[in-house]
Design a binder for these strands. Sequence first.
RNA 1: UGGGGAAUCGUUCAAUGGUAGGACAACGGACUCUGACUCCGUUUAUUAAGGUUCGAAUCCUUAUUCCCCAGCCA
Length: 563
Amino acid sequence: MTQAMILFSSDFIRDIIEDDLQTNKNEGRVATRFPPEPNGYIHIGHAKSVCLNFGIAAQYQGTCNLRLDDTDPLGESMEFVESIIRDIRWLGFDWGDRLFYASDYFEKIYQFAVELIKSGNAYVCSLSPDEVREQRGTFTEPGKESPYRNRSVEENLDMFQRMRAGEFADGAHTLRAKIDMASPNIVMRDPVIYRIKREPHYRTATKWVIYPMYDFAHCLSDALEGITYSICTLEFENNRPLYDWIVGKLITGLRPRQIEFARLNLSYTVLSKRRLIELVKKDYVQGWDDPRMPTVTGMRRRGYTPEAIRKFCAEIGVAKNDNLIDVALLEHCVREDLNDRAPRAMCVLRPLRVVIDNYPENQMEQFECANHPQNPEMGTRKIPFSRVLYIERDDFMENPPKKYHRLGPGREVRLRNAYVIKYESMVRDDRTDEVIELHCTYDPQTRNASPADGRKVPGVIHWVSAQQSVPAEVRLYDRLFSIEDPGSEGEDFINHLNPNSLEILTTCYVETNLKNAGPESQYQFERLGYFCVDMDTVAGKPVFNRVVQLRDSWAKITGSKDY
RNA sequence: UGGGGAAUCGUUCAAUGGUAGGACAACGGACUCUGACUCCGUUUAUUAAGGUUCGAAUCCUUAUUCCCCAGCCA
């Protein structure tokens, strides 16, 4: 990614780095890493971390490694590795040849453990999981030392080797760091650093039956890669003393420094892996790339751009306060980006038929329309106009309120890019009494001009030609949850799913120009919002996802939600 | 309850002993062939109480509130 694409910024982590650079710590080197576990898809919260780690590397001419933190084979898979790589690339970041796997370090990490045993700093413990828990103590009481704590180095070495050789059942023994069972920090009470797990690993297959724990593997992986700043989230603050203890015992010279920041929370969604997995597994959504999901792949399918996501990550900043970011900020960022780059188009979501009585039966005109009102470089396109049109149902009211400036009995309105038309009469369905058709007349003088008599026509509505438009499916998305913080309540978050988070409209009409629009291309449907061509599109029958609505000050007045 | 963190507009981020500022949101208004965009304007904050100081969001003291930790998850 080029320098220009990076949003440079300042925060408490960058302050630390700049201080270090001043004193030439780490010989002026800046090395970070993004270390996801490949057991799920990455989401907008990960994107914050990606932007932070890769952004810092770019800002200080350093490096950022991509490292798959795959030390627990349960749930990890190549599918997730591939999705993570795809998503980070799409976000616009590059790690060159520095793609690493913690699993590639298993042998080295094993040797580090042997070293720890030899120096008397680790022992094989044969307590059961329950016993370990019981003996760990509580917040207020110290733990008890394991009866196996003082095994000889020789016995430990032998046992650990036999653990590796597969002589024992899962859970029969663990390797524990010998630290302090009385530590007020529970993390330091002789933490388990290796466990036996007879689970095939997606990369090392059945080569290993013991796997290092996060606390042991992560800091050593950082050290092996020469990481200078190991940036992680707040919940690892308690683990930092252990991080420093392990590195202090095993690594000489320059050591990585762990710095913690607050993870992102976003209103009206959930960002915990556990909850996201539940949404997918129990079919509350249609997969990881469901456009309602806060996953990178979901947002991509929805129509978000990498630029918008990066802007958002820059806007929210980095600090140590717990936060709940208003999703309105995310929406603002995508509108800002798409406003600049999305060509305009017209689409009628809920059609109402309009006949222009004084327009000749077989006449057809082509109007040249700007693709972007502020950017002429985006060119023009031709839009067909004819006697029968569709307009939005919401753009006609029988008994409109005062400030409504669209169509109604006795009213005039401007058809966007076309003529001013005037209401003449309506046709009702005999049975339902519903208005099914409008008859209007047009003013031929108003094609590219205001009415000759100087009268004001305040309203402008969008439309398509009935004959020359293409049927489309449009999927309207709303927030996945109906409360701000579904993750916080004691109640099951599933109870707060928004039942109206997806509305599928199958009778829409879009202008002919979009008949073969390619997947992932974004448009602004004027007066409606930004839309993105979904991958479910088939030739000639486009499917659009609504990325986000336009800001709508009329909706604020009426309280109505959308079209 | 022991330990580790954090408290600043509605939401967020800043101000590093010297004018509390930005963004989003909200609310007015201007403009407009998108009730969009853009532009102009307005409202709103230092958790509390003491102290140090010419001067405190910042330093000290005492409270209060919230988050994290008792996985052989990360």
